[in-house]
Design a protein around this nucleic acid. Structure first.
Lengths: 144, 144
DNA sequence: ATAATTGCAAACATTTTGCGAACGC
DNA sequence: GCGTTCGCAAAATGTTTGCAATTAT
């Protein structure tokens, strides 16, 4: 599944006319192997572990290019910096466990439908959306 | 009846032990008169129009303090910078018009209820949430 | 060949911080 | 008077960009 994703992204790059350079290939590989939502610095760290010498500016530029072509998603959570996620997976939203900072994906079609409805009622067409639900485990002891 | 929002905020400040300095008063005034969600720079611009000489660092510090004490809300939309909103109003979510950067508030109880439901299904208790729907005007002229 | 992409450093944008002076309580 | 807050300038982040060299097609 993971291996496929890298190839799929590589193919999409070619389709879009993007050149498959060494650094870009490495970035695609790292991205494909990242099930989470790393920011540029973390991504760069992982890329450097695979192939040192790649500049963080290249990471930024590549992420921007990939996002422009719709190959990845660029989130910006509350912390301010941009976080990236390899596209290809289905749309989903996020639970953020405030006690562990863990992110859990979920999907709720009914909510999506309601969004469409209320947007239309306001005279809008949806371009995209972001839903984060900050949570803590149900039964567990209260945090701090 | 409606005690001025500015007065309400001022009182809350005192309650929380925050000093009501000149600059802070001005910032509360501007904030109270801002129905939108200005960022620090815009807020500073408005503050300067009322009383020149207030530094933008003071705006940042004041917004942080107010947010820590729960008197205002600090949003961070996709554009990266922080935007502030005088609290006190009911909970709501946001449409962000991607063509104008304008923010429109909305509220949808059905969505809130679905959130509760799906969170519970995942074994979570909701602490808070954030929903932004990025939109463009429906019918008329296409953007770009 | 030639246009896209890279590394590097410098520029940029936003937000925070150290400090001594000024101020509210 | 004492602790908070201020203005200022400098630092800290996070991200983008100009340019000459390199590389994929």
């Amino acid at each position: 599944m993971t291996k496929d994703l890298e190839e799929k992204l590589a193919e999409l790059c070619k389709e879009k006319g993007m050149r498959l350079t060494g650094p870009r290939r490495t970035i695609l590989r790292v991205l494909s192997a990242s099930p989470d939502h790393p920011d540029a610095e973390e991504l760069h760290r992982r890329v450097m572990a695979v192939e040192p010498g790649i500049n963080i500016a290249t990471v930024y530029r590549t992420m921007n290019t990939l996002a422009e072509h719709g190959l990845i998603e660029r989130h910006s959570f509350a912390d301010g910096r941009a976080r990236y996620e390899a596209g290809g997976s289905e749309h989903h939203d996020h639970f953020v466990n405030v006690e562990t900072d863990e992110v859990v994906e979920f999907r709720c079609d009914e909510i999506e439908i309601l969004q469409q409805k209320i947007a239309r009622e306001h005279g809008f067409e949806i371009v995209g959306h972001r839903l984060e639900i900050y949570v803590r485990p149900l039964s567990g002891k209260a945090g701090i």
